[in-house]
Write a protein that binds this DNA or RNA. Structure first.
Lengths: 231, 231, 231, 231
DNA sequence: CATGAATGAGACTTCATTCAT
DNA sequence: CATGAATGAAGTCTCATTCAT
């Protein structure tokens, strides 16, 4: 498809650089109309998906002309990326930096504490950006190129730090002695499943502390009867 | 959009009835051409998504005329449902009936045995129908109506039986004493995450026995060091 | 511009091959509607130019839907090439073959005879295809790529034969002893000027025999008083 | 098309008056920005053609706002005429006056001398304004109205003087005894062909004296062997 | 005066669907 | 029954022009 081919060309460079460039370009000097356009676009992309949303409908709901949209974003694709990239930018690096620092040093005696802090932090972030999260998840499913870039970013930015944490608690004998790769696999499967099922599939706007606690407990001890477990 | 509005109208009746009706209609008198059409459609919907696939392209690759497609399926939407519904029909009811019987009675001494059998059985099923599974997952994300119907079906057909199993093992003291609802929630989150991450997101065509074992072990005992665990 | 970039891509292969392929594709199996479309397109491109003619207007005048146009020609550019290429195909090679054979051997005692036959033959051809000639001339002015391809074709197909003729008459002492290159340059300048001024610039639908005679006389003897000339 | 209809309305008055009016308006109070705008517009119109050049691109390259362009020129069409008209104004009247005086009286013993001086003078003029010449040629091809006006201007201003010259040399027996009309026709065909092929079609930036000489020789004596010719 | 955000008409193109053959 | 030419609504995008600042 033309659009998709176009987007791939546009993605030839490093995604991360694009993210930065785009975030700057976009988040600064955003007029009221531009904000309204993005707002509407995010809402509609989240609900109906990118392909099923027409620029005409966005223009109508944002109360601007279609021309205005293209004046600002050039193509529909770029509008999508103006939404996706800044989100990933703030989701990933901050995940890597502040989040880990905040979470890890503050009296995190156990991996459970770490997980708890992590879940709460990211849950809040996703709730604050729920619609964009939905857009990202829904689009990544169709855009292999984008998905691979994201995986790379993940491998570079997140995996090493998680590995540190895992190694740290393994050394304390508090985590199962499995290869990190396998630990991370099941961990991400569950965490991803948790966020996507709650905030995309079920479109919930909040989760209770109890649910988070249950989730963390599950990650730590599974479903077996805990006649010997810690909690 | 026209297409989606159309599909909603069409879905006003009970989904399950439609599934049955469609399955009959479709699986019986399927000519070679019809099979080829569906084959091509599944392949393309799985790869590019329903919205990004044109009937013209399907016709061309299936080596039939566009007219033929509409002779058989009426609308593009109905073609999609001819793919999705039989899959759900064979995924859900068989899950409810044969599968459970097969799995549960055969020397399933522990919940772990049950899970193992379940994982293996469903993994095989999904691998055999991987592309259709991808189509279903990708489309359900955009079709709330369909998603809700599926959830209802699940609640009616699957949940009760899982509850039976869970109650059975709870009574034996082998499962954590949590409300079934919470147990099912984490269970489905992980299982769904496992299937979708492997067979949609990563588009893998197989998973090793080791991976399944690790997954089941995780479900049972989590990530904590198993100085007291059974395995 | 998008369109032009597109056309260049399309032109990467050898123009001549494309001509052949296109001519075959187009001239065969042409339905009445297709003919009408081309007819209208030629008329409008000739009058207003390619850029200033919209597909909507073509559709309206040809009494078909816009969809039909794109069903047949894919893009507006390809429609243009469906017009230009077959014309060039029949203008150049036949110029090279039949024309030269016809013209050159039939009692062409003098270069003047040759020129006369040539002028008459090509004048008739252009009059028969006047509108297409106009389209070609008007588009070549904007499409350097196309122009260069045409120049190459000319160098390969026409120039050698003209050189033969020129050499032949030079050997008989009937032509000026200048390098062929210079002879051809002034010759083509005048012949091109003659055809373009009459059939594009002035949009004439015919020229009289007298005019042709005067033109040929000019080519041979110029404007000087012919106190020694042959005519 | 809107643009063309606009231009026709605008052309209802006498072209020549407009030329004068425009030339005054334009050449006087031209600010640096206006000059830059025209410079860029000429460059782009010459390269890509009027229709394929957007005002946005002109504004960007001229480093002014789009508003500024329309403040100065009102419409895109008027901007084109601000380019074309002064050129025609300086090409035609000066052709009629100074040029003829310069050329004709300075020891022009023969028509060949006259032609030589004429070619050199106009070649220089066109080279100095090559891009504008290209714009004029390319646009005249599409604008019949403008073309006709120009023809009229030519008939009124240039033809009479050329006739004088032709008559003068005819009287001296140095030119062929043909009706002036026919002489002028072939003369203009060749001269027009010479300028357009060299400076538009081939986009050359200069021609050698030799080429000019050959051209003039051709005009005078044609291609016949000059066993009796003067040169 | 200059700016550039905004417009809306219209450009090219796609596509699900229909229907005469 | 199958075909594929035809449709027309809707899609993305461009662009000359306007106007509040």
């Amino acid at each position: 498809m033309e659009t998709q081919r176009g987007s791939e060309v546009w993605l030839q460079n490093n995604l991360f650089d694009e993210i930065i460039a785009y975030a700057k370009e976009t988040s600064l000097k955003q007029s009221a109309k531009q904000k309204k356009i993005l707002e509407v676009a995010i809402d509609m992309f989240a609900k109906k998906g990118y392909s099923n949303t027409s620029t005409a409908e966005i223009a109508k709901r944002a109360e601007v002309s279609e021309g205005t949209i293209f004046k600002h974003y050039g193509t529909k694709d770029k509008m999508l990326f103006s939404i996706i990239f800044p989100f990933i930018k703030s989701a990933l690096p901050s995940l890597a930096n502040e989040v880990f620092r905040e979470i890890f040093t503050e009296k995190t005696a156990t991996f459970e504490d770490f997980l708890m802090a992590f879940f709460k932090n990211r849950t809040q972030f996703i709730i604050e950006n729920r619609q964009i999260f939905q857009v990202v998840v829904k689009e990544l499913i169709y855009r292999e190129e984008l998905r691979n870039e994201l995986l790379s970013l993940f491998q570079e930015n997140i995996t090493p730090r998680i590995n540190q944490v895992v190694d740290y608690f393994k050394a304390q004998g508090k985590l199962i002695q499995l290869p990190n790769e396998m630990i991370l696999k099941v961990l991400f499967t569950f965490i991803g499943g948790f966020f996507i099922s709650n905030f995309v599939w079920l479109n919930r706007s909040t989760v209770s502390d109890d649910e988070v606690k249950t989730a963390v407990r599950f990650v730590m001890h599974g479903l077996s009867s805990s006649n010997e477990g810690s909690e």
